[in-house]
Structure formats: structure tokens, C-alpha cells
Simulated assay, not measured.
Amino acid sequence: MRMNVKLSPEMERFIQGKVASGMYGSATEVIGDAIRRMQAEDERLQAWHVAVRVGEEELDRGEGLPYTPAALDEITEEAIRGMHGNAPACRDVLP
């Protein structure tokens, strides 16, 4: 499919700079990468919305845990242990 897109001069310079830097071989590659990144962000946002909904449903069923300083300490300790271990990071906390 072929599309004609009107870009601002600033966007054109940005794309040209990416190509000139050698990071991309063409303006098409820059645009394609930008679209893939937007798609990935949309997927992360959708997953976040689902996780929030699931959490709200769990809270409505009384399945939540009190958020106390002790609970925060436990969460922090678990995160620190995870950083120093060989286990992969939970995808819920990845950017």
C-alpha cells in the first residue's frame, strides 16, 4: 500500500537526522519503527487496563491485602532479591 503523508518541517528534519546518523537506512524504516513502537505501547496500555480491571475485581471480592509499611518493605525486599537473582523480570514491571 502506498500513502502520502504531510509532515511538519520539524518532523522531516528529525527523520532525516535519523537516516543521516546511520541508525536507519531510509525514512520508511524510521516511520516503520515509530509505528511498531506505537503498536507496542498500545499493547502495553491495553494490558495495563486489563490488569487494573482484574485488580479492581479482586478488591471487590475482598481479595486485597492491606497496604502497610510492612507490606511495602516486603515488596521492596522481594524486588531487590529479584534484581540480584537469575529469574527473568515479571512482564508486569517491564517498561
Rank of each mutant, 00 (worst) to 15 (best):
M3G: 04
R44A: 00
L59Q: 07
A51Y: 00
M23H: 05
R37W: 14
E43S: 01
E56N: 11
M83R: 12
G17S: 12
R53H: 05
T68C: 06
I35E: 07
A89R: 09
L59I: 07
D42M: 15
A87R: 08
E29A: 14
V50I: 11
Y24P: 03
A79L: 15
Y67I: 15
E56F: 00
N86Y: 01
P95K: 12
E29W: 03
L7A: 13
D42V: 15
R37G: 00
T28P: 00
E29R: 08
D92I: 13
A79R: 14
R44Q: 01
L65Y: 00
F14A: 07
D42Y: 15
L45E: 05
A20C: 02
E58K: 12
K18M: 09
A27S: 12
M11G: 15
Q39S: 02
R53G: 14
E74F: 10
V54P: 04
A47I: 05
K18S: 06
R61G: 10
V54R: 06
P66A: 12
A89M: 13
A87T: 11
T28S: 12
E56Y: 00
M1E: 09
I35D: 05
A70M: 14
H84C: 02
I80C: 01
T76C: 07
E78W: 01
T28W: 02
R81K: 14
S26W: 02
E41W: 15
R91K: 13
D60V: 01
